[in-house]
Design a protein around this nucleic acid. Structure first.
Lengths: 168, 168
DNA sequence: ATTAATTTTCACTAAGTTTTGAAAGTTCAA
DNA sequence: TTGAACTTTCAAAACTTAGTGAAAATTAAT
Protein backbone atom coordinates (compact mmCIF):
# COMPACT_ATOMS: atom_id res chain seq x y z
CA UNK A 1 0.00 0.00 0.00
CA UNK A 2 1.21 3.48 -0.89
CA UNK A 3 1.61 6.11 1.79
CA UNK A 4 -1.06 8.40 0.35
CA UNK A 5 -3.61 5.61 0.30
CA UNK A 6 -2.70 4.42 3.78
CA UNK A 7 -2.97 7.97 5.09
CA UNK A 8 -6.40 8.44 3.56
CA UNK A 9 -7.59 5.17 4.98
CA UNK A 10 -6.28 5.90 8.43
CA UNK A 11 -7.91 9.31 8.47
CA UNK A 12 -11.20 7.89 7.39
CA UNK A 13 -11.27 5.06 9.93
CA UNK A 14 -10.17 7.27 12.77
CA UNK A 15 -12.96 9.60 11.68
CA UNK A 16 -15.67 7.01 11.80
CA UNK A 17 -14.37 5.64 15.07
CA UNK A 18 -14.64 9.14 16.44
CA UNK A 19 -18.16 9.49 15.11
CA UNK A 20 -19.22 6.30 16.88
CA UNK A 21 -17.86 7.76 20.07
CA UNK A 22 -19.77 10.99 19.84
CA UNK A 23 -16.81 13.05 18.69
CA UNK A 24 -17.59 14.62 15.39
CA UNK A 25 -16.15 13.09 12.28
CA UNK A 26 -14.20 16.10 11.09
CA UNK A 27 -12.72 16.70 14.50
CA UNK A 28 -11.46 13.13 14.61
CA UNK A 29 -10.12 13.39 11.07
CA UNK A 30 -8.16 16.52 11.81
CA UNK A 31 -6.77 14.81 14.84
CA UNK A 32 -5.81 11.76 12.78
CA UNK A 33 -4.10 13.91 10.18
CA UNK A 34 -2.08 15.80 12.76
CA UNK A 35 -1.07 12.58 14.48
CA UNK A 36 0.57 11.08 11.44
CA UNK A 37 2.22 14.22 10.06
CA UNK A 38 5.81 14.70 11.09
CA UNK A 39 5.50 18.49 11.28
CA UNK A 40 2.81 20.92 12.40
CA UNK A 41 0.23 21.98 9.79
CA UNK A 42 -1.42 25.32 9.14
CA UNK A 43 -5.16 25.84 8.81
CA UNK A 44 -4.78 26.05 5.03
CA UNK A 45 -2.89 22.79 4.86
CA UNK A 46 -5.57 21.06 6.91
CA UNK A 47 -8.24 22.51 4.61
CA UNK A 48 -6.56 21.17 1.49
CA UNK A 49 -5.65 17.78 2.91
CA UNK A 50 -9.18 17.08 4.15
CA UNK A 51 -11.17 19.14 1.65
CA UNK A 52 -13.10 21.07 4.23
CA UNK A 53 -13.97 24.72 4.57
CA UNK A 54 -12.08 27.31 6.53
CA UNK A 55 -14.87 27.74 9.07
CA UNK A 56 -15.16 24.06 9.72
CA UNK A 57 -11.40 23.75 10.16
CA UNK A 58 -11.28 26.61 12.57
CA UNK A 59 -14.17 25.35 14.71
CA UNK A 60 -12.87 21.85 15.04
CA UNK A 61 -9.27 22.77 15.64
CA UNK A 62 -10.42 25.03 18.44
CA UNK A 63 -12.49 22.22 19.92
CA UNK A 64 -9.49 19.88 19.75
CA UNK A 65 -7.44 22.47 21.59
CA UNK A 66 -10.18 22.62 24.25
CA UNK A 67 -9.97 18.90 24.69
CA UNK A 68 -6.22 19.24 25.12
CA UNK A 69 -5.54 17.00 22.12
CA UNK A 70 -3.99 19.62 19.86
CA UNK A 71 -1.59 22.48 20.46
CA UNK A 72 -0.97 25.71 18.64
CA UNK A 73 2.62 26.03 17.50
CA UNK A 74 4.16 29.33 16.57
CA UNK A 75 6.89 29.15 13.97
CA UNK A 76 9.30 32.05 14.51
CA UNK A 77 9.15 34.50 11.67
CA UNK A 78 5.82 33.17 10.41
CA UNK A 79 2.53 34.95 10.76
CA UNK A 80 0.41 31.82 10.46
CA UNK A 81 -0.51 29.52 13.29
CA UNK A 82 0.45 25.88 13.05
CA UNK A 83 -1.05 22.90 14.84
CA UNK A 84 0.28 19.61 16.20
CA UNK A 85 -1.36 16.72 17.96
CA UNK A 86 -0.01 14.74 20.87
CA UNK A 87 1.43 11.59 19.31
CA UNK A 88 1.49 9.42 22.38
CA UNK A 89 -1.78 7.48 22.11
CA UNK A 90 -1.71 6.63 25.76
CA UNK A 91 -1.75 10.31 26.65
CA UNK A 92 -4.49 10.90 24.10
CA UNK A 93 -6.59 8.20 25.72
CA UNK A 94 -6.05 9.77 29.12
CA UNK A 95 -7.09 13.21 27.89
CA UNK A 96 -10.23 11.79 26.37
CA UNK A 97 -11.05 9.83 29.51
CA UNK A 98 -10.51 12.90 31.67
CA UNK A 99 -12.69 15.07 29.50
CA UNK A 100 -15.54 12.60 29.16
CA UNK A 101 -15.54 11.82 32.83
CA UNK A 102 -15.88 15.50 33.58
CA UNK A 103 -18.61 16.07 31.04
CA UNK A 104 -20.60 12.90 31.51
CA UNK A 105 -19.86 10.79 34.54
CA UNK A 106 -19.63 13.59 37.08
CA UNK A 107 -23.15 14.94 36.33
CA UNK A 108 -24.61 11.43 36.43
CA UNK A 109 -23.09 10.80 39.86
CA UNK A 110 -24.76 13.96 41.14
CA UNK A 111 -28.16 12.97 39.76
CA UNK A 112 -27.90 9.48 41.20
CA UNK A 113 -27.22 10.85 44.68
CA UNK A 114 -30.42 12.87 44.51
CA UNK A 115 -32.45 9.98 43.22
CA UNK A 116 -31.57 7.84 46.20
CA UNK A 117 -33.67 10.10 48.35
CA UNK A 118 -36.95 9.14 46.76
CA UNK A 119 -39.73 9.02 49.33
CA UNK A 120 -42.52 6.47 49.60
CA UNK A 121 -43.63 3.30 51.33
CA UNK A 122 -40.70 0.86 51.25
CA UNK A 123 -43.21 -1.98 51.03
CA UNK A 124 -44.54 -0.70 47.70
CA UNK A 125 -42.83 -2.87 45.15
CA UNK A 126 -42.42 0.00 42.70
CA UNK A 127 -40.60 2.06 45.28
CA UNK A 128 -38.56 -0.94 46.32
CA UNK A 129 -37.57 -1.84 42.79
CA UNK A 130 -36.64 1.75 41.98
CA UNK A 131 -34.48 2.14 45.06
CA UNK A 132 -32.69 -1.12 44.46
CA UNK A 133 -31.89 -0.24 40.88
CA UNK A 134 -30.60 3.18 41.75
CA UNK A 135 -28.47 1.87 44.60
CA UNK A 136 -26.85 -0.71 42.42
CA UNK A 137 -26.22 1.70 39.57
CA UNK A 138 -24.73 4.11 42.03
CA UNK A 139 -22.37 1.48 43.35
CA UNK A 140 -21.22 0.68 39.86
CA UNK A 141 -20.87 4.32 38.87
CA UNK A 142 -18.64 4.98 41.88
CA UNK A 143 -16.42 2.07 41.00
CA UNK A 144 -16.18 3.32 37.43
CA UNK A 145 -15.34 6.76 38.72
CA UNK A 146 -12.51 5.44 40.87
CA UNK A 147 -11.15 3.33 38.07
CA UNK A 148 -11.17 6.26 35.68
CA UNK A 149 -9.51 8.53 38.19
CA UNK A 150 -6.73 6.02 38.66
CA UNK A 151 -6.29 5.64 34.93
CA UNK A 152 -6.20 9.38 34.37
CA UNK A 153 -3.55 9.80 37.04
CA UNK A 154 -1.50 6.69 36.35
CA UNK A 155 1.73 6.88 34.47
CA UNK A 156 2.28 4.86 31.38
CA UNK A 157 4.63 2.27 32.76
CA UNK A 158 2.46 1.48 35.70
CA UNK A 159 -0.47 1.10 33.39
CA UNK A 160 1.16 -1.16 30.88
CA UNK A 161 3.00 -3.34 33.35
CA UNK A 162 0.12 -3.79 35.80
CA UNK A 163 -2.62 -4.35 33.29
CA UNK A 164 -0.41 -6.56 31.15
CA UNK A 165 0.06 -8.88 34.07
CA UNK A 166 -3.55 -8.71 35.19
CA UNK A 167 -5.02 -9.24 31.80
CA UNK A 168 -2.49 -11.78 30.61
CA UNK B 1 -38.80 13.59 45.83
CA UNK B 2 -41.85 11.63 44.69
CA UNK B 3 -41.44 8.32 42.87
CA UNK B 4 -43.01 9.56 39.63
CA UNK B 5 -40.67 12.52 39.48
CA UNK B 6 -37.62 10.44 40.34
CA UNK B 7 -38.55 7.91 37.70
CA UNK B 8 -38.93 10.58 35.04
CA UNK B 9 -35.61 12.10 35.98
CA UNK B 10 -33.81 8.80 35.94
CA UNK B 11 -35.22 7.90 32.55
CA UNK B 12 -34.20 11.22 31.12
CA UNK B 13 -30.63 11.15 32.45
CA UNK B 14 -30.08 7.56 31.42
CA UNK B 15 -31.39 8.61 28.01
CA UNK B 16 -28.99 11.46 27.56
CA UNK B 17 -26.09 9.40 28.87
CA UNK B 18 -26.97 6.85 26.22
CA UNK B 19 -27.09 9.52 23.54
CA UNK B 20 -23.61 10.70 24.47
CA UNK B 21 -22.42 7.13 24.08
CA UNK B 22 -23.83 6.65 20.63
CA UNK B 23 -26.81 4.60 21.78
CA UNK B 24 -29.96 6.28 20.71
CA UNK B 25 -31.89 8.23 23.28
CA UNK B 26 -35.12 6.28 23.06
CA UNK B 27 -33.35 2.97 23.24
CA UNK B 28 -31.61 4.04 26.43
CA UNK B 29 -34.88 5.38 27.86
CA UNK B 30 -36.72 2.14 27.25
CA UNK B 31 -33.87 0.32 28.91
CA UNK B 32 -34.00 2.68 31.89
CA UNK B 33 -37.73 2.22 32.24
CA UNK B 34 -37.48 -1.56 32.16
CA UNK B 35 -34.63 -1.53 34.68
CA UNK B 36 -36.61 0.24 37.37
CA UNK B 37 -39.97 -1.48 36.87
CA UNK B 38 -40.59 -4.47 39.12
CA UNK B 39 -42.51 -6.40 36.43
CA UNK B 40 -42.22 -6.83 32.68
CA UNK B 41 -44.00 -4.27 30.49
CA UNK B 42 -45.88 -4.66 27.23
CA UNK B 43 -45.24 -2.55 24.14
CA UNK B 44 -48.36 -0.51 24.91
CA UNK B 45 -47.22 0.22 28.42
CA UNK B 46 -43.83 1.39 27.15
CA UNK B 47 -45.58 3.60 24.59
CA UNK B 48 -47.71 5.31 27.22
CA UNK B 49 -44.97 5.67 29.82
CA UNK B 50 -42.54 7.27 27.38
CA UNK B 51 -44.97 8.91 24.98
CA UNK B 52 -43.53 7.38 21.86
CA UNK B 53 -45.08 5.73 18.84
CA UNK B 54 -45.67 2.06 18.32
CA UNK B 55 -43.14 1.86 15.50
CA UNK B 56 -40.46 3.53 17.52
CA UNK B 57 -41.11 1.28 20.49
CA UNK B 58 -40.95 -1.82 18.38
CA UNK B 59 -37.72 -0.85 16.65
CA UNK B 60 -35.85 0.05 19.78
CA UNK B 61 -37.04 -2.89 21.82
CA UNK B 62 -35.85 -5.18 19.10
CA UNK B 63 -32.50 -3.47 19.05
CA UNK B 64 -32.20 -3.85 22.82
CA UNK B 65 -32.93 -7.53 22.43
CA UNK B 66 -30.15 -7.74 19.82
CA UNK B 67 -27.75 -6.18 22.26
CA UNK B 68 -28.78 -8.76 24.81
CA UNK B 69 -29.99 -6.10 27.23
CA UNK B 70 -33.69 -6.93 27.13
CA UNK B 71 -35.62 -10.19 27.03
CA UNK B 72 -39.04 -11.12 25.76
CA UNK B 73 -41.22 -12.61 28.47
CA UNK B 74 -44.31 -14.65 27.69
CA UNK B 75 -47.01 -14.47 30.30
CA UNK B 76 -49.02 -17.71 30.25
CA UNK B 77 -52.51 -17.17 29.00
CA UNK B 78 -51.67 -13.77 27.54
CA UNK B 79 -51.36 -13.04 23.86
CA UNK B 80 -49.16 -9.96 24.28
CA UNK B 81 -45.40 -10.00 24.58
CA UNK B 82 -43.81 -8.49 27.64
CA UNK B 83 -40.28 -7.19 28.11
CA UNK B 84 -37.79 -7.11 30.97
CA UNK B 85 -34.29 -5.71 31.26
CA UNK B 86 -31.36 -7.28 33.01
CA UNK B 87 -31.18 -5.45 36.35
CA UNK B 88 -27.61 -6.27 37.25
CA UNK B 89 -25.71 -3.20 36.05
CA UNK B 90 -22.46 -5.07 36.01
CA UNK B 91 -23.89 -7.53 33.52
CA UNK B 92 -25.34 -4.68 31.51
CA UNK B 93 -21.92 -3.04 31.33
CA UNK B 94 -20.40 -6.31 30.17
CA UNK B 95 -23.00 -6.75 27.43
CA UNK B 96 -22.40 -3.23 26.20
CA UNK B 97 -18.64 -3.70 26.25
CA UNK B 98 -18.91 -6.97 24.35
CA UNK B 99 -21.17 -5.49 21.71
CA UNK B 100 -19.16 -2.34 21.14
CA UNK B 101 -15.91 -4.24 21.03
CA UNK B 102 -17.36 -6.45 18.34
CA UNK B 103 -18.78 -3.56 16.33
CA UNK B 104 -16.00 -1.05 16.72
CA UNK B 105 -12.71 -2.26 18.10
CA UNK B 106 -12.48 -5.47 16.07
CA UNK B 107 -12.75 -3.70 12.68
CA UNK B 108 -10.21 -1.09 13.75
CA UNK B 109 -7.71 -3.78 14.70
CA UNK B 110 -8.06 -5.28 11.26
CA UNK B 111 -7.50 -1.97 9.52
CA UNK B 112 -4.46 -1.17 11.65
CA UNK B 113 -2.82 -4.47 10.72
CA UNK B 114 -3.14 -3.60 7.06
CA UNK B 115 -1.84 -0.10 7.53
CA UNK B 116 1.38 -1.36 9.04
CA UNK B 117 2.36 -2.69 5.68
CA UNK B 118 2.72 0.68 4.04
CA UNK B 119 5.59 0.70 1.59
CA UNK B 120 8.12 3.47 1.05
CA UNK B 121 11.59 4.71 1.88
CA UNK B 122 12.07 4.36 5.64
CA UNK B 123 14.25 7.42 5.56
CA UNK B 124 11.40 9.60 4.28
CA UNK B 125 10.19 11.37 7.38
CA UNK B 126 6.56 11.16 6.29
CA UNK B 127 6.78 7.41 5.96
CA UNK B 128 8.67 7.16 9.22
CA UNK B 129 6.20 9.29 11.12
CA UNK B 130 3.25 7.38 9.72
CA UNK B 131 4.69 4.01 10.61
CA UNK B 132 5.55 5.08 14.09
CA UNK B 133 2.08 6.41 14.75
CA UNK B 134 0.38 3.32 13.44
CA UNK B 135 2.64 1.00 15.42
CA UNK B 136 1.96 2.81 18.62
CA UNK B 137 -1.77 2.97 18.07
CA UNK B 138 -1.73 -0.70 17.28
CA UNK B 139 0.07 -1.50 20.50
CA UNK B 140 -2.47 0.46 22.47
CA UNK B 141 -5.43 -1.03 20.63
CA UNK B 142 -4.20 -4.53 21.39
CA UNK B 143 -3.85 -3.74 25.06
CA UNK B 144 -7.36 -2.28 25.07
CA UNK B 145 -8.61 -5.38 23.33
CA UNK B 146 -7.07 -7.67 25.93
CA UNK B 147 -8.40 -5.59 28.77
CA UNK B 148 -11.90 -5.61 27.34
CA UNK B 149 -11.78 -9.34 26.74
CA UNK B 150 -10.83 -9.92 30.32
CA UNK B 151 -13.57 -7.62 31.54
CA UNK B 152 -16.16 -9.30 29.36
CA UNK B 153 -15.19 -12.72 30.64
CA UNK B 154 -14.52 -11.85 34.25
CA UNK B 155 -16.99 -12.66 36.95
CA UNK B 156 -18.27 -9.96 39.17
CA UNK B 157 -16.35 -10.84 42.31
CA UNK B 158 -13.04 -11.08 40.59
CA UNK B 159 -13.70 -7.74 38.98
CA UNK B 160 -14.73 -5.89 42.08
CA UNK B 161 -12.09 -7.35 44.36
CA UNK B 162 -9.19 -6.97 41.95
CA UNK B 163 -10.00 -3.53 40.72
CA UNK B 164 -10.97 -2.32 44.17
CA UNK B 165 -7.50 -3.19 45.40
CA UNK B 166 -5.75 -1.83 42.35
CA UNK B 167 -7.63 1.40 42.21
CA UNK B 168 -7.87 1.93 45.95
C1' DA C 1 -61.45 -20.33 7.16
C1' DT C 2 -62.43 -16.20 9.57
C1' DT C 3 -61.49 -12.74 12.55
C1' DA C 4 -59.49 -10.09 16.06
C1' DA C 5 -55.28 -9.12 18.52
C1' DT C 6 -50.77 -8.00 18.09
C1' DT C 7 -46.35 -7.07 15.83
C1' DT C 8 -43.62 -5.39 12.05
C1' DT C 9 -42.56 -2.55 8.16
C1' DC C 10 -41.84 1.61 5.71
C1' DA C 11 -42.59 6.08 3.32
C1' DC C 12 -42.83 10.31 5.15
C1' DT C 13 -41.92 14.09 8.45
C1' DA C 14 -39.59 16.24 12.15
C1' DA C 15 -35.60 17.29 14.67
C1' DG C 16 -30.89 17.78 15.18
C1' DT C 17 -26.16 18.30 13.56
C1' DT C 18 -22.51 19.60 10.56
C1' DT C 19 -20.61 22.35 6.92
C1' DT C 20 -20.16 26.19 4.17
C1' DG C 21 -18.67 30.68 2.74
C1' DA C 22 -18.88 35.28 2.98
C1' DA C 23 -18.43 39.02 6.12
C1' DA C 24 -16.49 40.88 10.26
C1' DG C 25 -12.70 41.00 13.23
C1' DT C 26 -7.83 40.95 14.54
C1' DT C 27 -2.96 41.54 14.13
C1' DC C 28 1.12 43.38 12.63
C1' DA C 29 4.60 45.24 9.31
C1' DA C 30 5.54 49.11 6.82
C1' DT D 1 -2.75 54.68 9.98
C1' DT D 2 -3.28 51.58 6.33
C1' DG D 3 -3.84 47.27 4.29
C1' DA D 4 -2.46 42.54 3.65
C1' DA D 5 -2.43 38.21 6.06
C1' DC D 6 -4.75 35.64 8.75
C1' DT D 7 -8.56 34.07 12.16
C1' DT D 8 -13.19 33.98 13.85
C1' DT D 9 -18.13 34.26 13.58
C1' DC D 10 -22.65 33.11 12.08
C1' DA D 11 -26.81 32.46 9.30
C1' DA D 12 -28.25 29.61 5.86
C1' DA D 13 -27.93 25.12 3.35
C1' DA D 14 -26.92 20.33 3.24
C1' DC D 15 -26.92 16.27 5.43
C1' DT D 16 -28.00 12.80 8.95
C1' DT D 17 -30.70 10.52 12.14
C1' DA D 18 -34.86 9.60 14.80
C1' DG D 19 -39.81 9.18 15.14
C1' DT D 20 -44.58 8.70 13.37
C1' DG D 21 -48.63 6.28 12.11
C1' DA D 22 -51.14 3.88 9.00
C1' DA D 23 -51.01 -0.20 6.32
C1' DA D 24 -49.30 -4.96 5.83
C1' DA D 25 -48.05 -9.14 7.90
C1' DT D 26 -48.30 -12.45 11.42
C1' DT D 27 -50.35 -15.10 14.99
C1' DA D 28 -53.65 -17.68 17.49
C1' DA D 29 -58.28 -18.59 19.02
C1' DT D 30 -62.81 -19.94 17.49
Amino acid sequence: MKLAEAKAQFIQSWGSLGAQWGINRTMAQIHALLMIMPDPLSADEIMTELNISRGNTNMNVRELINWGLVDRVLVPGERKEYFTAEKDVYKVAKEIARERKRRELDPVLKTLEQLQEVEGDPKDKHVKSFKESITEINRFAHQADKTLNAFVKADENWFYSTLMKLFK
